[in-house]
């Protein structure tokens, strides 16, 4: 018998799409109780969204001013206190939010954490990637202790939306620190689909050469209803913002269709796209490692090829 608590990520308005994916992971554990904890301020709307995830039993809302913004040191004691109320597992999404928070929860509970769960092999047995995805490790969490983990989102489908769970206010008497102040979030506003949930992604690498040249990819992406991603080299060079990085240290994504344009295919990049449906690579170097994992490769100059694709798409 497992009872799973999932920590919800949200921005105060909208529940992160990863929560429904983490819920799938929770259901795979065989949870007969799957609760979602929403920590926030005036976050009734978010709690309602969580209540609609299929399979969720209850939504516990911890609505208080300290939770206005997500600060791991403030959230962790609350999550650990909730988790101690009889749960066998507590999970978060393996996003920067979950990666920041969950190890704090694990440390408070005095247990190890299973990072990036890609499959569930038993109540305490999980597979997770190591060495930038060069290997998959099966681990077993210690018996007699609560299991803390993060769900690798690209490995899990989103649970459906037909749920109708009750939303309950929850309280903990956890002591909250005041050593951390949240100041601001600077996010690049974009009308384009979200990189982590888009079904088509167009990514560019160092070969783009400038932020101006990235407009080639934006135009194509807009035509295709796609999100735009990038290699680390393109982000480091300042062509695009950090939230667009795909890979080991960026976002791990699983779109149906992925375009890698002017990207060499370093292992750290490939680990971020292994679960993509179809990978298209455009690179002028026929020996580029990206061709080893691409489903469809095209060798040539991206500055000639991308406009041609654009024209072909517009003509159709």
């Amino acid at each position: 018998m497992s009872s799973v608590l999932i920590v919800a990520e949200h921005d105060g308005q909208t529940l992160h799409a990863g929560v429904a994916r983490a819920a799938s992971c929770g259901l795979a554990i065989g949870a007969d109780r799957l609760d979602v904890a929403v920590l926030g301020l005036d976050c009734e709307g978010v709690a309602q969204q969580a209540a609609r995830i299929e399979g969720v039993s209850r939504v516990l809302s911890l609505d208080r001013s300290e939770n206005a913004n997500p600060v791991a040191a403030i959230q962790a004691p609350q999550v650990a206190a909730l988790a101690s109320q009889g749960y066998s597992h507590v999970l978060g999404p393996s996003t920067t939010f979950g990666k920041d928070l969950m190890p704090r929860v694990a440390a408070l509970l005095g247990v190890p954490q299973v990072s990036d769960i890609m499959s569930v092999e038993g109540e305490r047995r999980f597979k997770r990637p190591i060495y930038a995805g060069n290997a998959v490790l099966t681990v077993e969490a210690p018996a007699g202790h609560i299991v803390v983990g993060t769900a690798r989102l690209a490995s899990w489908p989103a649970a459906g939306e037909g749920g109708d769970a009750a939303v309950e206010g929850a309280q903990t008497d956890a002591e909250l620190p005041d050593h951390t102040s949240w100041l601001e979030l600077k996010s690049a506003e974009s009308e384009r689909p979200d990189l982590q949930s888009a079904s088509v992604v167009v990514s560019g690498g160092r070969a783009l050469g400038s932020s101006e040249n990235f407009s080639l990819l934006y135009d194509l992406a807009d035509r295709l209803g796609a999100a735009v991603g990038a290699s680390r080299a393109a982000v480091d060079a300042g062509y695009v913002s950090n939230d667009m990085q795909v890979g080991q240290t960026g976002k791990i994504i699983a779109p149906d269709l992925y375009f890698a344009i002017g990207i060499s295919g370093a292992i750290q990049h490939l680990t971020g796209i292994k679960d993509a449906g179809v990978i298209v690579a455009i690179n002028k170097d026929p020996e580029a490692p990206i061709f080893e994992i691409a489903d469809i490769g095209l060798v040539g100059d991206l500055f000639a090829i991308v406009p041609e694709i654009q024209a072909a798409v517009e003509g159709s």
Binding site: A135, T138, F291
Partner: peptide, 25 residues
Amino acid sequence: PPALKALAYEPPAQREKGVVVEDVP
């Protein structure tokens, strides 16, 4: 402290070898 037990290591699933096409069409 309590620890995870490493049970098995395996190589990741391999993607099938793709094709290289000649041109945009």
